[in-house]
Amino acid sequence: MSLAVVGYAEPWWIQLVKGLVIGALALQLVPVVLVCERKMLGRFQGRYGPNRIGIFGVLQPIADIVKLISKQDAVPYNAVGLIYALAPIISIFTAVAAFAIIPFSNTVDILGTQVGLYGVDPSIGLLYLFAFSAVAFYGLMLGGWASGSKYSFLGAMRAAAQLISYEIAMGLSVLGVLMMSSTLSLTGIVEAQQGLWYVVPQLVGFLIFLVSAFAETNRAPFDLPEADAELVQGYNTEYGGSRFASYYLAEYLNIIVVSGIAVTVFMGGWLLPFGIDPPTWVDPFVVLAKIGFFAFLFIWVRATLPRLRYDQLMSFGWKVLIPLATLNALVTAIVVAVT
C-alpha cells in the first residue's frame, strides 16, 4: 500500500514490537532521569536528596508514581471536562511520538530480518519532530485553558509563546547541519558524521540548538511557564493525580527527546570518536550514554542558573538567537556552495 511505498512499513509484527519497545523505553528512562535529577539537585544544594526508599533512594520514583496514580483525579468546578482530560494525553502522545525517531543504531539483522533500531525513519526526518512539537503546543495550551483558572491560563500563554518563539531558532539552528548532510533523515545525518561530528563545524548551531532546547522543554533557566513564585505551577496548576503525572512524564520525556536529537544531529549518534568501531550491539548503549550526558547537563544548568525575566527571555530569543541562527545558516550555505 501507499505507506509501504513511502518506506515506513516493515512487517507488521516488527512495527508492533517497536511500538511496545519504544513505549516501554520511554517509561523506563523517565524515572531514571527523575531520580538522577533529585539526587543530583540534592548534591548541588548540599543535602542528601531522596535516600529512604530502596538503596540510595533509587526506588523513589516508583513511590512517586504509585502515589500519583492512586490519587483522586479531581476536576475543578470551572474546568471544561473533556478538554481538561484530553490535554495531558496530547502532551504525552506527542512526546512519545517524537521519541520514536531517535535512531539507536542503523538497520541490524535480527533473526534474518532487517530491523532498524529506531521507531520510524521517515524521509522528512527532522520535520517529523517539528510537526509533533507543533502539536505539543496544544497539550499545554488546552490544559491551561480548560482548567478554568487564571494561573493556569497565564502559564499556558507563557508556555505557548515561549514554545513558538524558540521553535524558530531551533529550526534555523539545525539548518546548517541539514545543508552539510543534505538529508533530513536522522540515520542519514548520523552516517554523514563519520569522521567529524557536526558539533565541530556547526558549533554555533549546536549552541543555539542547546539554548532553544532548554526553552522548548520549559526547563530552568527558561522555566517561566511554571515560575512558582508568580504562577503557582503554570499550566498544570489545577492538575493532580495521574493527569499531573502525565504532564510530568511528558516534560521529562521531552528532555530525553531533545537530548536524543542533539546527540543524533550534532554529537554523532551511535558513532564513537577516534575511529573506534565497536560491534553493532554497543551502538544503543553509546546513544544512551550520550543522552545521559545531555540529561545531566540539563540538571546541572537547572541547579546553577537563576530564572530569566519574561522580557529577557523574549528579547533574547527574538533579537539574539534568531538573527544568529539565520546568520549561521547563511554562512553555512555559502561555505557549502563554495566547497
Binding site: S123, L127, A131, A134, V135, M141, I164, E167
Partner: peptide
C-alpha cells in the same frame, strides 16, 4: 509526506496557534 509535515508545522503549528 513533506506536504503533510508542512501542513502540520505551518497550519496547525503556526497559523492556528
Amino acid at each position: 509526506e513533506f506536504i503533510a509535515a508542512a501542513q502540520v508545522v505551518v497550519y496547525a503549528g503556526a497559523v492556528m496557534v
